[in-house]
Amino acid sequence: MKKTKDYDYVVIGAGIAGSCVSHFLKEDKVLLIDRFEDVAQFASGVAGGFLSPLLGKPNKFKELVTKSLSFAVDFYKSLDESLIVQKGVLRVPKDEDDRLKFDVYKKHFDFEWEEKEGGFFFKIGSQVFSYELCKKLTLNVDKIFNYEVKHIKYKEGTWIINDEIKTKNLILTTGSDIKLIDEEYINIRAVWGQRIDISTTTCIDFNYHKECSISTSYNKVTNDLYKVSIGATHHRFESKLEKDFKAFENPSLSNLSNIGYTNELYKKDTLELLEKANNIKTLNDVKVLKTYFGARASSFDYFPIVGSLVDSKETLNMFPYLKNGTHVKSDRFIRHDNLFILNGVGGRGFVLSPYLAKKLVDFIKKKDTLDDEITVDRLFKKWVRRNK
């Protein structure tokens, strides 16, 4: 690798989270690194890019999604209106029990809505073009691709990556791959999913969501054929990948078989997606064009993980009585100097990432506070309680 200059910020991971963080730092000396040859080549490349409200009774997570959705739609429009299709989304109850829940949720809907086709239509529902969007976000950012980060170390106020790249601040947006973080309390579960792009003679006017999501007919294949996205399935595999691979477009299933994603499961998932989609809207003359696989990075409490990393060893050395349940304010925890994270955005990555990236950048540069439910600190506290 050629000798590189020193940076104010290095972001590792070029999915939607890393792309958004880099965008908000683009006025500084920032470098974006990824092990693949381009942006959005793992979970973010697999995503259908659906933006939809979260329904339910008021709670902290719903509040976060609502704020993030409003921010994301406005942000994407201001970035490039051609990369977002806003034709609304119809949320359809799965069954009668689900309909009764929806009736209860009505008074808690956060966005303009109307009843339509047996469901609830929200004008804010949108879809973004995931790869093109990440390209746009990182347009004016220094980037290094096909670069595997093997080790990081902190020395004399500087983070050093592979003994080659130096930066004052290091931000990890690596999704399901957390091997660079030597902290047991950071625990990410990979939720594997499949999305398919199809051609159909059925024109779809807006997005649908029931047991899967169907996109509007956002493009034409020919004069009488429309392109539509359907996603996504959910699998949690116990085994780990034996090697890294690009999980973007039609990857070799021999790679996926290491974790249990067999040809049989792929065929089953494809048929399941088509069946679920047809239960929402009849799709005629269907042909599968492309298949996408990938692992969404989710936390165990479903909230994202944002902020500066707690040094668990040094914090417990300083405050050993944490293990006995004694309360210590988070601002007294010992931190890894200038080491930050944005992770665990799960299946709502394109909804959450712009808002969270802006919050993280303001936290780093302006010393703004982060809400307790999204910080790293909550995970550290839970880990201490479990291991006392």
Rank of each mutant, 00 (worst) to 15 (best):
F42W: 02
K381S: 14
L100W: 08
F380K: 00
F333E: 11
R195N: 07
T326L: 11
N169G: 09
V376E: 13
L139C: 06
D98G: 02
K227F: 02
L170W: 05
E164I: 07
S22W: 01
I33S: 04
V228E: 06
I196P: 04
L133Y: 12
E183V: 03
L273A: 06
D103K: 15
D285H: 11
T66I: 04
I204W: 07
D34H: 15
K382H: 09
T375I: 06
P58G: 02
K5R: 10
D103L: 15
S52W: 00
E373T: 09
F300V: 08
E314Q: 15
Y261E: 13
G18C: 04
V361A: 08
E63L: 09
G125H: 06
I188D: 07
T282G: 02
L271Y: 03
Y292C: 01
D8L: 05
I230R: 01
K29C: 03
D368H: 13
L322D: 11
S19Q: 02
D28F: 12
K179M: 07
V10Y: 06
K281N: 09
D6K: 14
K323H: 03
N255T: 00
D28V: 00
F248I: 00
E249N: 06
K240D: 12
E27G: 07
L64C: 04
E96F: 14
L322C: 10
F303L: 15
D311P: 01
I165R: 14
V128H: 11
M318Y: 13
G231W: 08
I152D: 07
D311W: 07
L90C: 03
D34V: 15
A72H: 09
